[in-house]
Design a protein around this nucleic acid. Sequence first.
RNA 1: GCCGGUGUAGCUCAGUUGGCAGAGCGCCACUUUCGUAAAGUGGAUGUCGUCGGUUCAAGUCCGACCACCGGCUCCA
Length: 615
Amino acid sequence: MKPKETESLDATRHSLAHLLAMAVRELYPGAQNAIGPAVENGFYQDFDFSNAHITPLHSPLGRGEKARGVQISDADLPAIEKKMRELLPQWKEWTKKEVTLAQVKKEFAWNAYKMELAKEFAKERKTLTFYVCGGFVDLCKGGHTLPLAEIDPKSFKLDRLAGAYWRGDEKNKMLTRIYGLAFATKKELDKYLTMREEAERRDHRKLGQQLDLFTLSEQVGKGLPLFTPKGALLRELLNAYSQELREKKGWQKVWTPHITKSELYKTSGHWDKFGGELFLVKSQETKDELVMKPMNCPHHQQIYASRPRSYRDLPLKYMETTTVYRDEKAGELLGLSRVRCITQDDSHTFCRPNQIEQIYQELIDVTKTFYKSIGMQIRARLSLRDQKRPDKYLGEPKLWEEAQRILLKIAKESGLDYFVAEGEAAFYGPKIDFMAVDALGREWQLATPQLDFVQPKRFGLTYTDETGKEQTPVMIHFALMGSIERFLSVYIEHTAGAFPLWLSPVQATVIPISDKFASYGAKVKDALVKENIRVEMSDANETLGKRIRAAELMKIPYILVVGEKEEKNGTVNVRRYRGGQPSSAQAAAGEDGEIKLGQLTEKIRKEITEKQYEI
RNA sequence: GCCGGUGUAGCUCAGUUGGCAGAGCGCCACUUUCGUAAAGUGGAUGUCGUCGGUUCAAGUCCGACCACCGGCUCCA
């Protein structure tokens, strides 16, 4: 979409927020409306219904019996939407009027929220303006271009109800927010709704259940997922690959415990920042104040500090896949995407400043390879500190500038598609975030190499340089997938559960046409097992169609049908996931259809080893 | 945490104004042995989220709690 069109669409969305306010105030006299900007896909308006009542005209229930305080639910949205459409034709022209605070008070004395804003704006010496349309007056800074009456009444829709704190502050009163969706045309609105349905179909929580990958138990606790054999296999395969790629570049596994004295995080600086998120552990034997580890960097630094280091030892590359624990707010937990036990494929590298570039290059290489193998595109976000708020960050400004200069150079030279985001840096250093783009076009922050000059200094880490002087090493944090749980939530939705062959928990299923061919089926299965291919054989007690359907629903990449013809020729009839019944043309091209057993195992083996992305 | 919604069989869901808890899939048994997305017959399956209240009678009405879902920066 061109910027100009976006602009006018936003103006329309903002205007619709005004219309929404009018509709609500007609149906619920006394309802106070608050803010109402355009948002990503539509608009919203916050309301306080505590002084509202339903007009008798619209609801006989409202008559006197509950004069004050109305509760509304999703069921009321259609009526409000209908009212909006009714009012729409009158919204022909926008009139702007500059007003004084006194005039605002005269119009909006009943609306505490409008008054609060108006008083504030007056104090800031902003010009107060009214915008009037369709006979509806509202305090507004403007931005209305189109006569609302001209839009397609079907191009917008009220979406859902939500609670929202007044001005986004949880100390304030919670208002009822009504969200609407609006697009330039009905067609685009429908397209968006279809996309959202698709996202729902791909919801990792749903697929996790359908494909038997993980489960949540009330008895275990919120945000603590349990992985089934298939899910655990997925985790292991991904992690093994993540570690294998780094192992090839010199990273070495280390191991650290899951609980630690809280002292460690006081030294690292995490206590002040994340103290509230720590799970506390009580020792019955000692007086130690223990916590579940929320991250691994301090532990890895203790390994570094365990003996004197020379510049010849650097870079020192540690990696560890381990679970850390964070006590997230209950309302923020969600499937696998927000959990309280987070498994990181973590690594920490200690190096000299002049080695940073090389390490980054290695990490970028690893990242590119990994994401290519799983079929996701990546983009890099260069996260720098907010220039205006230096107090948010630890460390000397000079080190920051140097670090930011280095990262910018690396980003430019890596050939990565990158963009700069100010104010997104970690408190201890700038970083490059890799954003993965999923099948629905959504972007997710996953892999993140982060440069850290602060922690090594705090822990007093040193190495002896070639002149015999003590120096502080630089530390680079890096997790390829970030958190495996969160990564899986994204990846399940990206693939809709149809994983590439090398990651499929079950790679092939053998389906003998009938019991008569079960022994040949077993032979085929054994041949695949011998090649370390994950294969199952279905029980011939069900009809062929039903077994094929079951295999398709479980998204098994290779469906191998064997019957009389196959047994006689020593072949297998290959049907790929979602490929339908193999045609003779495919067979001729050597793709699906009849294929010699030996050729099949070779073909599958090769596909697995090459980790080709094929869904 | 807060606002709104939902909670009935393993899964997806029905259950009118309060009156003997249901369907499909799955599961189990038997029959069928099949050539590419659901064979047939029969059977088992429930603390209707939990606790309390109203009632002759509660899945249904009232209250509290729990879990899950949508949302809570984007300043008229």
